[in-house]
């Protein structure tokens, strides 16, 4: 389990993290979200024991990261921001070095090295110097390093930054697979990633937690939650459609996009308007290209909360 208790980090000029308290249990994948400079990396550094908090405490699997640093670090796999490593080392030698420092016994070391090399597709670069690799490979070397000792807790700062869509998918699959028995905290500014892999999201802004919920609950805070969007076949019908939809009693507001010939109807709180809009479209003889129910827009929630 990861536990933080009123974690604060103050610098002379700024307060980077203020009163951050949360717990993460096995099976949870916690997504850390926030604008740049909100305190995500600072919080993760305090979890990893790299930064000492000004006040408050953090513990990993019951080990306080400040008073029992070595025990806490053994239970933790950590990918620092930017996936730093030793550029002049070759990938194979670098992973070997980490495995030795992690005290993996010989047999297990071989098995784990094989596993991470295969899972993160590093076979082809084992003999290359890390500084000659692309950003995506470097990130995967950083991930491999964090997974090497099969730790119960993983703290990954932007694990998919710099990866192409296929590699992103691979890493997300890997995280989902590991999620069952591990505790995973990732930070990201890619919102779709949160919806894809996280069971819980914490939004942090100006150093404080401003939301702590499941991605589904967060999206339902969106004003687009349960909104109905219809795209018309003929743009001439746009004005008529807008007026008719706006007249429905359960519709709170209507947004129109002329470029897409799209009308989006936002419901009043708690109302379900799909049936009404569908019936209206049939009654008015609107020719539809598309009609769908929106679940909510995470980016809009994110902007509203962190603005």
């Amino acid at each position: 389990m990861i536990r933080t208790d009123h974690l604060c980090k103050r610098y002379p000029a700024v307060t980077a993290v203020e009163d951050v308290t949360f717990e993460v249990r096995p099976g949870e994948v916690l997504g850390f979200l926030g604008p740049n400079g909100a305190g995500k990396t600072t919080t993760m550094r305090m979890l990893a024991g790299f930064l000492a908090p000004t006040s408050g405490r953090a513990s990993i699997c019951g080990h306080d990261v400040q008073s029992e640093p070595l025990a806490a670090r053994q239970s933790l796999g950590y990918l620092p921001e930017g996936a730093p490593s030793y550029g002049e080392m070759r990938v194979g030698a670098f992973l070997e070095f980490i495995a030795e420092l992690r005290r993996l016994p010989a047999g297990r070391k071989r098995a784990r090295l094989e596993y991470v090399t295969e899972r993160l597709q590093l076979e082809s670069v084992l003999d290359q110097a890390i500084e000659t690799l692309s950003k995506g490979f470097r990130r995967r070397v950083g991930l491999a390093q964090a997974l090497l000792h099969d730790p119960p807790v993983l703290v990954l700062d932007e694990p998919t930054d710099g990866l192409d869509p296929n590699q992103k998918h691979e890493v997300r699959t890997l995280i989902e697979e590991m999620a069952r028995e591990k505790i995973i905290v990732i930070s990201t500014h890619i919102l779709e990633e949160v919806a894809a892999v996280c069971t819980r999201a914490i939004i942090i802004a100006r150093g404080r937690i401003v939301a702590d919920d499941t991605p589904l609950q967060l999206t339902s805070r969106s004003r687009y939650h349960n909104a109905v969007s219809l795209q018309l076949a003929r743009v001439e019908q746009l004005e008529a459609a807008r007026a008719a939809v706006a007249a429905l009693p359960a519709v709170a507001a209507v947004e129109v996009s002329e470029r897409e010939a799209r009308v989006t109807a936002l419901p009043r709180a708690g109302a379900m308007i799909l049936q009404d809009v569908a019936a209206l479209a049939a009654g008015q003889g609107l020719q539809l290209k598309e009609l769908h129910l929106e679940s909510g827009r995470l980016d809009e929630v994110f902007r509203t909360i962190t603005a």
Partner: peptide, 14 residues
């Protein structure tokens, strides 16, 4: 400068 100190100092090394 390279940030590798963050890696080294979060490994089980004093």
């Amino acid at each position: 400068k390279s940030g590798s100190i963050e890696l080294l100092m979060t490994l089980p090394v004093r």
